[in-house]
């Protein structure tokens, strides 16, 4: 295994983790503040991807990046006020059932409207192409287009899709922005206080319910960002929401319900686990080991979850007693 292939596997792991992190971030934010297990979060991603593909096709990708998160924020608010708020005081199982129901309705409605087949979602012209990484002393032919980044430890040069690197950057910026919002603003202070003890904050005369509605909207907005930037990768069809929800939910559970830093680390763990087991399965010569690794590659996400939860039932950064 060369240094180049390890480098590519790391980038792949980061990028796989990035999309899980974006979706899990919204999930864990909503659980951490509202205490709601939102199984409709995959459906929000789905709605975002459909809006994105149609907006990108009609008014351009730039507008899609701007509009889709706003639309999703509004959908999130409407969903919280119209449905979710009636389930705050009910058990988690009821919340899971109702949000899961919403997810099925959204999926089937989109299938009814646009068919079950995939809607092609092409990358915008400015986001297509490869980024070239080159090592010390590498001779890169001038004919190769695109951005070039020096990586002294590489042998020769390597490519990675520009859009996937952008996804990693967008994820990092989004996570930092949410962190800053919660840590350094007055809104964040109130929300964090509400997470600690909503009752007391209410007694102090703060309308914490309104703040929590906005938090739900922000969770949906993050799903919107994930839909715009993830859509061209996962493509747009009614089943994609559910396909992403399961690993993203695992990320939240492994990280600890409601913990943002936990979700981030868990997403990275899963991304790297997927990337490296596949990479090793492909690289290994011994047929028995290859069979084992090939099988492992398909279940590695669940295996990580099992190991983490056996050792630490509340998840990596979970609060004691919550979903333990």
């Amino acid at each position: 295994m060369t240094i180049n292939s390890i480098f590519l596997m790391m980038l792949t792991g980061l990028q796989l983790g990035a999309i899980y992190a974006l979706i899990a971030l919204g999930l864990t934010l909503i659980f951490g503040t509202l205490g709601v297990v939102n199984f409709a979060h995959g459906a929000l991603y789905l709605i975002a991807a459909y809006f994105a593909v149609f907006l990108a096709g009609s008014v351009g990708f730039g507008w899609a990046i701007l509009l889709v998160p706003i639309i999703l924020f509004l959908i999130g608010l409407a969903l919280e006020r119209g449905l979710i708020q009636f389930f705050y005081s009910r058990p988690h199982t009821d919340q899971i059932l109702v949000t899961f129901g919403v997810a099925i309705v959204v999926e089937e409605a989109l299938k009814w409207m646009f068919g079950a087949n995939n809607i092609p979602f092409a990358l915008p012209s400015w986001g297509a192409g490869q980024v070239l990484f080159y090592g010390a002393g590498a001779v890169v032919p001038d004919a190769i287009p695109g951005i070039r980044i020096p990586m002294p430890f590489l042998e020769g040069f390597s490519f990675f899709p520009a859009w996937r690197l952008l996804l990693i950057i967008v994820t990092a910026v989004t996570i930092l922005a949410i962190f800053a919002l919660l840590q350094f603003t007055r809104f964040g202070l109130v929300v964090r206080a509400g997470m600690r003890d909503a009752e007391i904050v209410r007694f102090l005369g703060v309308n914490i319910s309104a703040r929590f509605s906005i938090v739900f909207g922000i969770g949906a907005l993050i799903a919107g960002i994930a839909g715009v930037f993830g859509g061209p990768i996962t493509q747009v069809s009614p089943t994609v929401g559910m396909a992403l929800l399961v690993p993203s939910f695992l990320v939240v559970v492994i990280g600890g319900m409601g913990s943002m830093i936990g979700a981030l680390i868990a997403a990275l763990m899963l991304g790297m686990a997927l990337s490296f087991t596949t990479g090793f399965a492909a690289a290994i010569g011994d047929p028995t080991m290859k069979t084992v690794l090939t099988a492992l590659q398909q279940i590695v996400v669940y295996l990580v979850a099992v190991v983490v939860l056996l050792i630490r039932p509340r998840g990596l950064f979970g609060t004691k007693g919550v979903f333990e």
Partner: peptide, 9 residues
Amino acid sequence: TDFSQFLTA
């Protein structure tokens, strides 16, 4: 949904 780890290999 994402085949990037397989494609990288």
